[in-house]
Amino acid sequence: MIRVSKLTKDYGSRRAIDALTFEAKQGEIVGFLGPNGAGKTTTMRILTGYMPPTDGEAYVAGYDVVAESLEVRRRVGYLPETVPLYPEMTVFDYLMFMADLRHLPSADERVMDTLEMVGMEERADGYIANLSKGMRQRIGLAQALIHKPEVLILDEPTIGLDPAQVVEVRNLVREIGKERTVLLSTHILSEAQQLCDRVLIINKGHIVAEDTPENLQARLVGAERVMLRVRGELDDLPAKIAGIEGVQDVSAQDGGVLEFQFAPGQDVRPEVAKAVVKAGFDLLELRPVGMSLEEIFLQLTSDNASSGE
């Protein structure tokens, strides 16, 4: 549904994105992850027909974003980073305006359906100026969904929302992503992890990593670190655990806490748990502490920076 090949965009002498190549299939939620200024918004603006690339090609829903821009724009729903709303309009009028621009039949029904989808049907007659940030975000999303687009492009869709709203928006995106293609950008790693089928990590205009969130984590983490806690003191437990095959780098801490790590792909946690119980300890907690996606991300993006690209 989205096919991008060697996409490049220069702003004057500054290269915002450099030969990006990626794909997104139907029914796939692809996350664009990167620090501010990495080129996420630029890429999205090219894909939505807002501006043409300097070089390279991009096809959305089978149409060239430059030569067949209008066809692309008909099939894409786009939520820009700054939610584009007219504060002096009512919610209903605003969505009617968007529905009219998209030539939707029985537009008023469609507007109400979409409002219901984003949980805003009660505010249909309210002025956009009086809405909270979260509500505005949802109206922005409604605008992007109103024509049931084949491809949905969301630039930071959960920014500025409270936790409950974040969950709602994520559920909504997940629902939409079952049938349609969703490309969303975020700099919240847990969001990419929870929501996306595939993550593209982009930094300084380059894709530095591309995989499922799980694989990405597994591939990038040198070892997985686990924290273990038992009731009482550890006594001889560290030695016992260190003896289990695959366990590395055991370190005992106060309060019955112990940390160890194992190589990715050879999960020794079940063996460790059995050993703990067998040794007569009460196992209270066993959880991964190791490198979070956050740390991987920081490592990736800073490595890339220092390698001089």
Partner: peptide, 14 residues
């Protein structure tokens, strides 16, 4: 200024 230009320029509109 309002950013709504982005909305109009990505709508199917010449």
């Amino acid at each position: 200024r309002m950013g709504t230009m982005e909305l109009l320029l990505t709508a199917p509109l010449r």
